[in-house]
Nucleic acid binder design. Structure first.
Lengths: 215, 215
DNA sequence: GATTAACTGTACTGTACGGTTCAGTTTATG
DNA sequence: CATAAACTGAACCGTACAGTACAGTTAATC
């Protein structure tokens, strides 16, 4: 067996083309959805030719799956690691970060894609769920557990409580943003909703500073 | 002007054809999505001809919008009007009814349609939002307000609390069902989640029977 | 039973798109 | 500078589909 020995610059150019195609495809898929996206449009946007697309990705579906995988791998939800702030403040930051992310254009479009094509690609849907929602819930859950151990909160099932807290925020704002009923910016709306959710959460799981301690 | 005087049986037949087409179109649209639905398939399923479809609905988009409107008008979310049961029980029924509905096949498919085409038809999206989420939240909110007045609960902002409660249920189960990661039945999962949400809600807004009254 | 509204079935048009082919060009390699 | 890998651009094939046209049929009306 002779090793193919791919020369460096050839490989670099090749990958730069692949990246250009991926970037263009991501944009078009997110903007128009799977079915409404034509590979001619992708090629045009990438300054590439359809032949190259097919050489690298094999088919429209292949390209799509590569894009999805890529987006999942690259996305980073901005999660403020809480320093030494009160739980109310930390929760508010978690909540605001989460819902702001969920309602921003990219993630909204990605959510639409996943919701429509997810059933055809279970492994990718699973990957998304693990890397996205599950991971975020895990982070907040860990925080709740930590604060419970520290005596600041009293959360018997941190993971479950984290899910309820975060998901309660994915409420009407998300629905309205998804269906285009609400146009950005909705910072004030978000702030109000977060305040309400934190209040409810602390009424349930907080330890009131000095008055009426829970038995 | 001579009044057209539509005779009864002609009109009946006409409307029966329209209904057949609507039923077929609803099924195909829900199952395959807007783009992937062909009017030939709809015609076949309705035992109708494309000409008739176009005579009644004008275009594919026209048919689609009629279907959406029809579904919104006909849907009834099963909301148990709570009799004289404790709030915990009433909330559990509200919650279970809500999430069971949200994760059943028809509503899931409808949600997918709305999420992908909603931005193109703002009036219909608005109609859905008003007749669906907003209405349900209103019903639960009214219940919470009533129980608060009756002294069984202590909910300062009933509408907001209702939203948080219901939306917290639309959590991972809904996400997984949407993306095909979870196949029915998930009654046990739902029951567990509902129990958790009710517990959290009552910790926040309930009046503990005898011990440690809130100030 | 003649008239007519509504419908079916089929064939057709035009177009858009997934995928392929290929001739010619760019660009790194040795 | 000759070679070869990778790419472009454009033409092309087959198919699927929105929408139209129309000839023939069903069925209600008077």
């Amino acid at each position: 067996m002779t090793a193919p020995e791919k020369p460096a610059k050839k490989r670099a150019r090749r990958e730069s083309r692949i990246e250009a195609i991926q970037a263009a495809a991501e944009a078009v898929f997110l903007e128009r959805g799977y079915e409404a996206t034509s590979l001619d449009a992708v090629a045009r946007r990438a300054n590439a030719s359809k032949a190259t697309i097919y050489a690298h990705f094999g088919s429209k579906l292949g390209l799509f799956e590569a894009i999805i995988q890529n987006v999942i791998a690259q996305v980073q939800v901005p999660l403020q690691a809480p320093g030494s702030v009160p739980a109310a403040e930390a929760l508010a930051r978690f909540g605001a970060g989460f819902i702001t992310f969920m309602t921003s254009p990219g993630p909204l479009a990605f959510y639409r894609l996943l919701v429509t094509k997810g059933t055809d690609m279970p492994e990718l849907a699973q990957l998304w769920f693990t890397n996205g929602p599950r991971r975020i819930i895990g982070i907040v859950g860990a925080y709740l557990e930590d604060r419970t151990r520290a005596g600041e909160l009293d959360v018997p099932e941190p993971e479950l409580a984290a899910e309820l807290f975060l998901m309660s925020l994915r409420g009407t704002i998300h629905l309205q943003a998804l269906t285009g009923l609400l146009k950005p910016p909705f910072d004030e709306l978000i702030a109000a909703k977060v305040r309400a959710a934190v209040t409810m959460f602390l009424r349930a799981y907080g330890k009131p500073p000095a008055r009426s301690p829970r038995p």
